[in-house]
Design a binder for these strands. Sequence first.
DNA 1: CTGTTAGCGCATTCAC
DNA 2: GTGAATGCGCTAACAG
Lengths: 344, 344
Amino acid sequence: MKPRTKTTMKDVAKLAGVSISTVSAVVNDRVPVSPARKKQVLAAMAALDFQPDAIARGLKTGRTNVIGVIVPDITNAFYPEVIRGVEDTARKAGYSVLLCDSNEEPANEANHLNTLFSRRVDGVLLACCTDSTSYAHAARRGCPVVFIDRIPPVSMSGSVSTDNLQAGNMATRYLIDLGHEKIAILAGHLGLSPHRDRLEGFRKAMQEAHLPIRDEYLIAGDIQIEGGVAACRKLLQLDAPPTAIMVSNNKLLLGVLQALDELNMKVPEEVSLLGFDDYIWNRYFNPSLTAVAQSTMEMGKAACELLLRTIDNNDEAPVVQHLRLPAELRVRASTTSPRVRSHA
Amino acid sequence: MKPRTKTTMKDVAKLAGVSISTVSAVVNDRVPVSPARKKQVLAAMAALDFQPDAIARGLKTGRTNVIGVIVPDITNAFYPEVIRGVEDTARKAGYSVLLCDSNEEPANEANHLNTLFSRRVDGVLLACCTDSTSYAHAARRGCPVVFIDRIPPVSMSGSVSTDNLQAGNMATRYLIDLGHEKIAILAGHLGLSPHRDRLEGFRKAMQEAHLPIRDEYLIAGDIQIEGGVAACRKLLQLDAPPTAIMVSNNKLLLGVLQALDELNMKVPEEVSLLGFDDYIWNRYFNPSLTAVAQSTMEMGKAACELLLRTIDNNDEAPVVQHLRLPAELRVRASTTSPRVRSHA
DNA sequence: CTGTTAGCGCATTCAC
DNA sequence: GTGAATGCGCTAACAG
């Protein structure tokens, strides 16, 4: 492997017969340069295959045109879609994306943040994990941060997420309208704002319908597949099992599907099922899954735009904004009225 | 937003009452420093919350400890898993990942590559799109590149992918052993090495079994959902429709599922279905899907390790290696013997 | 318009 | 062991 080719402005300047600053001027075309010289420089740049060194530029200007994105689990299909929105928006604005996966570990998250700061990213998009205290970190360093999807309790920064309260409320009301009264919720991890908010929406809907919320019907704490299996088994072994199960998280849902399968439960005849996060393949489940869809790419786009605005604002008044995107209920075959069951 | 806090080695040196080079020495501990001073410096670093500036270091050393990763479509669930493997390996080795999504556009890919070069990444992991000529680019710049999943025709660089020929062969043989003779293949885009190789494996298996390969049974060119819908419709309208369909790509497969659903075809009674790429949710399709699984995270890990080795090797003999990972067939309910059909 | 100059923060000789 | 000096490639005043 031959030593890395490094054509610098100096080389270009020499070949074009101009000074380095003239080269810089045409590269950044902020300062006027006479057409003739500009042409020379451009020619020299092309001839030498010159590419400005973003590292050197970053050192000089203090801006890297890089943003960091930290997600808790990139194998959760929700995040790639968000990332697509982020990456697309960032690229169009001339930014690159440094991707970090915290794997749901606060320690990893903290390490990643340090690395990002050390790399002098211009800003960070953060979907934090439970027990995360990293926002303190960020604030201390004065690095713009926009929270995405998962919002920490107190946040002076901007944030973008789905309106999960509305989403949880809407989903619950739909089940209630269908005639369900015994509705269980696998609420996920209540240290996570989306899950907390969905549960809150659930509570509100139940209260408004004057329906009791039984302790046995509320299961929280886990967001992995195995947790979904265990929770679902527990629910169905109850003396009075629920007629509908609402699942706050897509990984939990897969566990529920597995448990339902093992117990040979018929959906929706014996129990209705409603999930959060909609994917194209939900349509092909057996039966197809009723789910609450989030605007994932839009979320990424909005968050990135907000972050970019915050960065551009710099020392001006901080852009603190909390966007809540509407969710959409997609009704399919996994939910039905509980009356069907009493006929049996 | 207050101006970005920037604690430099200078500040640390002043507080600790030593010179900058001593600070540098303890930060990189390559040069011996007396314990007493080391302690002072460490204390000063902690007090000032000092974080070395990776940008300045990169400029100085010529190494950024950043690798670029370009994928064609991050919303294709295959890539996030690969990325997880990459990111994990990279992080453990002290590298960060600059993520790019080419969105299956060669032009985007080329732009991303330029950006990455300009950012002085130490190496690039590239899953290229069709008609990509970017490897020439990379070679010209002398930047280490390892191809991943999709390998260009001629490659002097290293590469890591599934042994797709074996995978296609194995899958086809499985269908043949089941008794199928009329096997169709949605081969994907033949400009992509995985698809080309799978088709080759298919051909070999058919030939070995002395089975003819009918032109109408071989559909290639598209890898999007809509293409899968169209291709599947076409196949089933044939005078002699296939008894089994093998689908080379997961997005095509979703289209096939949709078409099958619309045409009210029973799987596997009327037609067997076999897909490539296995995901946890394939189990919950109706019926559950027989699929060829790739070792996605391992692929990411292996590719990253190979790249890192190439980078460390620097001017030494180039590490050119072509890893082919074995695939695994996961038999589920979407495939069965065609005899079942003749009973009907 | 154009060239000269002075660092950005750090790693690395080289003297001491 | 330690510190002063040099420059990585570039931008941003500032003179001309």
